[in-house]
């Protein structure tokens, strides 16, 4: 089902993930966040941007365990823990943050 933004139509799959990664921009991220009932703050953007960089580097959306560890390494232990990440993305940091970041659903995420 396509989402409409600024007169542009963007394709998503049946779960709301972007079909084409290249379609992503910050406006679309905002729209995807709205569909997840997530109010984007700087902390949210930090995780979303981290995920985009991670994907760019490894061509994979990380599993939540790996995301937590990698964030801890880059942004410090106060952010690299599941409590912090679940507060930002209550329905699963990997799942929700990946969707907002325009990435595919993480491999192994049911």
């Amino acid at each position: 089902m396509p989402i409409e933004i600024n007169g542009k139509s963007v394709e998503t799959d049946e779960e709301g993930y972007l079909i084409n990664l290249a379609d992503w921009d910050e406006d679309i991220a905002g729209e995807l966040a709205k569909s997840e009932n997530v109010e984007m703050s700087d902390s949210h953007w930090e995780v979303v941007n981290f995920l985009r960089e991670y994907y760019n580097e490894y061509q994979i959306a990380p599993a939540v365990r790996v995301l937590t560890k990698a964030i801890g390494k880059k942004l410090g232990p106060e952010k690299g823990n599941s409590k912090y990440l679940y507060e930002l993305f209550p329905y699963g940091p990997a799942k929700q943050a990946c969707k907002i970041a325009g990435l595919p659903k993480p491999t192994g995420c049911i």
């Binding site: 580097e57 490894y58 061509q59 994979i60 990380p62 599993a63 790996v66 560890k69 990698a70």
Partner: peptide
């Protein structure tokens, strides 16, 4: 590039 991520898994 994903082979380089295996270590993190």
């Amino acid at each position: 590039p994903t082979y380089r991520a295996l270590e993190m898994y």
